[in-house]
Simulated scan of single mutants.
Amino acid sequence: MLKVIDLPQQNRNYAKLLDPSEQLRPEPIYAGKLQSEFRKFDEDLEDSIKERVRKTYELMHSNQTVEFVKSRMKDWLKFNKFKMTIKDALLKLNDLVDESDPDTNLPNIVHAFQTAESIREEHPDLDWFHLTGLIHDLGKVMAFYGEPQWAVVGDTFPVGCAWGDSIVYRATSFDNNPDGKDSRYNTKYGMYKPQCGISNLMMSWGHDEYLYRLLVHNKSKLPKEALAMIRYHSFYPWHAGGDYMHFCSSEDYKILKWVVKFNKFDLYTKSNAVPDIEKLWPYYEKLIDKYIPGVIEW
């Protein structure tokens, strides 16, 4: 006899976002890899990429504290670092390899076009969605202006409350983070209230929050769904792990659907197949001019 488990309401809401029929199908293959072969964070001292990823997260989890995030927000959210078009910022990603990513060792601009083109193929009429795929990692330009990669790339998580169980390397990587010993921040709710809303959490500092704030500051014409995808696409402990649901408001479940929709294009398009970027530029330049035109403040 099957045992029926009554899940808390927030977990029932999260479960509705998942397609149970997926469990009965053969494991999907993306870019020549099984779905389970993506985002593998197992440790191997002899593997240089896995060691690079582990060290990046160890630094991140040791140093991303409430005070650190406040200091980065104070510094970056003045938007007085430089002025540049979206295209010029994208071109800088030619010189960036994400040190937290176990799935690709290619420059980040390749991933940008892989993501955008896969969205364009499946949703040809949603041009704002195509552009969102192209620019979603653009906040990583911080790495060229003094920020270490552990404060730019990788999965994000809220600071100021207990760390979620599904965070990668969770077991030991937070051992040196002082917030874990601070009674203001180390409980389930920490400095927040139940159902306060995901947008009211202070996230670890990185490219997601920075680009979201930058687009709002520069009055981009992208819809709220695009801004939500950009702001939370690296928040894997929430949209993939099911953690932090106790902070969700009813509006957050609508946002979560879009973030989950975006994730498959972000994650499962990483491969060694490089799009013809020069050929694609004219199309995406038109979208940039439509939604985020001209020189903007960074």
Rank of each mutant, 00 (worst) to 15 (best):
D276F: 07
S36I: 12
N272R: 12
K33C: 10
Y185R: 07
N177D: 05
D155S: 12
I277H: 05
N218K: 07
L91I: 12
E251A: 13
P8K: 15
D75E: 15
M229Y: 02
A171Y: 14
P107H: 01
K181R: 12
E27F: 10
S71K: 08
K188M: 15
G32H: 02
K81H: 15
E121T: 08
E37D: 13
Y268I: 06
W298K: 12
D182N: 11
W258Y: 13
Y291N: 09
L215V: 02
K290R: 08
D19T: 07
Y291R: 07
G160K: 07
L93H: 01
N94Q: 09
T132M: 01
N218F: 03
H136W: 01
P282F: 01
D127I: 00
L138C: 06
N186L: 06
T85S: 11
E285F: 06
I86L: 06
E67W: 10
K16L: 11
L287R: 02
Y189K: 08
K270Y: 06
K219S: 14
S36W: 11
E122P: 12
S36C: 11
K33V: 11
N200W: 10
Y145P: 04
L45C: 11
R39D: 15
R120D: 05
F38N: 09
Q114Y: 02
V110K: 03
K224E: 15
Y232R: 00
S173Y: 10
L134F: 02
F262K: 00
K78L: 13
D127N: 01
P8I: 09
H61F: 15
K92A: 09
P8F: 09
R12S: 13
R25F: 08
G32W: 01
S234R: 08
V259G: 00
C161W: 04
F129P: 01
W238Q: 04
W128R: 05
L222A: 03
S271I: 12
I292D: 14
L280I: 08
K254N: 11
Q10S: 15
K219G: 11
W128E: 05
P26W: 02
T104V: 08
C248Y: 05
I29D: 13
V274C: 07
S183A: 11
H207I: 00
E51C: 15
H61C: 03
I119G: 00
H246M: 12
K40W: 15
F41T: 10
C161I: 05
M245F: 06
K270H: 04
Y14G: 08
F129T: 00
F235G: 00
H111S: 03
K219P: 10
D125A: 11
K257V: 08
S100M: 04
Q64K: 10
